[in-house]
Write a protein that binds this DNA or RNA. Structure first.
Lengths: 248, 248
DNA sequence: TGCTCTAAGTTGTAGTACAACTATAGAGGA
DNA sequence: TCCTCTATAGTTGTACTACAACTTAGAGCA
């Protein structure tokens, strides 16, 4: 597995060696290769397994610890943090909502209500760091799991960073998949969280009667620090479980 | 500053050298020593400043990157992530609520409504990994900022891990400060987030009429992986801004 | 003015060595 | 037999060095 790993995964994944090892270890952890509270192999053995230096393994393990997936104990080892299966919807992991739904074993769909290019609002221009007369792509969509609406999203894209072909693809399918194809996927997002009670949010006959939502107000950034898109996502309370790992 | 740092901070802070450097750098970042988007000193220079090896600096920087405070760019440097002042209420940073309020320049108080030792409920016993007939300490409190109620908390402690003196101190002041004094402060927590609309939550005349809360349902763990306390904290919507940094 | 290329600077990875800490097994004593 | 202590092996933490990979800025040239 030693050299084979570096050959195989460098094509699929991106980022540094340490990031690749981190992502692979995360898959192994979430795949329950080790039981909760159990000990994973030592740094020397992992370095052997992946054919990388111990420094690289330590980089990956530190990152996983900050994410709350493992506990590293000096002189003892690294242990799987006790979490439920719901970790896959971990809030600090920046990933596609639809992909998360699919990984949890459900059928995910996106229903576009509207898609238009218009001038940016003041708030949008500020978040996207563009002038106020710039054009932006605004999309309103509903996200469903097994046919049931779980969220309503209002996204606004900085079209200066994107080509018309990509814009079309974004408005039709998964945002993350489209951005990934041109290597412009966001690596970081800043989100505010709010509780919202309103009947003005959802639409259609599947609109929840309670009107109770968890709002994620986000700005997504590229690796070079530039904002690529911003948006509000209203999650129907109770339909989606958000987990967050907090560390010192 | 080189040797002085290691002498000074090893008394106040805990954890490995890398953790101490990380905490110190976090203070410098949140203190706006560098402007948003600006570049912090290189790894070699920081290693000089702190009198530690570059490996140790890299450990700290990686952790700060995972927390979303900086962006590290290969061949270029580490840059301050663009965030507002509200970062100090970063949701993935496990810290005392009252201390966070104070750091934001407000006066924080805790008003205890009730404090009792009783048998654990089924849910509490499961979360705390104790038998169902075990005794637990249950406290109901309101948290205020500048005299205004910002949250209601319902906490339950595993008293097997604590002495009577500490239990008394917990019920009177800050939980984190009390646990810190016996080096049993939690290093990790797992939290669910919910939007709640109910008039059964708050009490007193300051109870918000809207009844709209952001609920944090948490379990706190010690470094050895054992749960120390669990609890529900209901934040009055609009009074407390939660920020979260999401990374790939 | 604009472009290309070079060089300096920065982070990423590798390897080695030793320090600090933990857990275990075993010796020794009550 | 049980308990306590100790030695020891195993693991993570820190240090130092060296080089690779990448970015940026500036010199030089057309």
């Amino acid at each position: 597995m030693s050299i084979g790993f570096r050959k195989n995964l460098s094509k699929e994944t991106s980022g540094s060696l340490g990031d690749q090892v981190r992502d692979h270890l995360r898959i192994r952890i979430l795949g329950h290769e080790w039981e909760a509270g159990g000990k994973i192999p030592g740094e020397f053995e992992l370095a052997d397994q992946y054919g990388v230096a111990r420094v690289t393994i330590r980089t990956a393990l530190r990152s996983l610890e900050t994410q709350g997936l493992i506990d590293i104990r000096h002189g003892s080892g690294a242990y799987i943090a006790d979490f439920g299966d719901s970790v896959r919807a971990g809030l600090q992991e920046l990933r596609s909502i639809t992909q998360t739904i699919r990984e949890m074993g459900h059928k995910a769909e996106m229903i576009t209500r509207s898609s238009e290019i218009r001038k940016a609002t003041a708030t949008e221009a500020k978040d996207l760091q563009i002038s106020e007369d710039s054009d932006v792509l605004h999309i309103e969509r509903a996200i469903t799991a097994d046919g049931e609406v779980v969220a309503f999203s209002y996204d606004t894209f900085n079209i200066e960073e994107l080509t018309p072909a990509i814009l079309k693809r974004i408005s039709k399918g998964s945002v993350f998949a489209a951005l990934d194809s041109i290597r412009k996927h966001p690596v970081r997002a800043r989100a505010e969280i709010h509780a919202i009670s309103s009947n003005e949010i959802g639409w259609g006959r599947d609109r929840p009667r309670s009107g109770l939502y968890l709002l994620l107000r986000q700005v997504h950034y590229l690796r070079n620090g530039k904002p690529i898109f911003t948006g509000d996502t209203f999650f129907v309370e109770g339909k989606f479980q958000f987990i967050i790992h907090r560390t010192v």
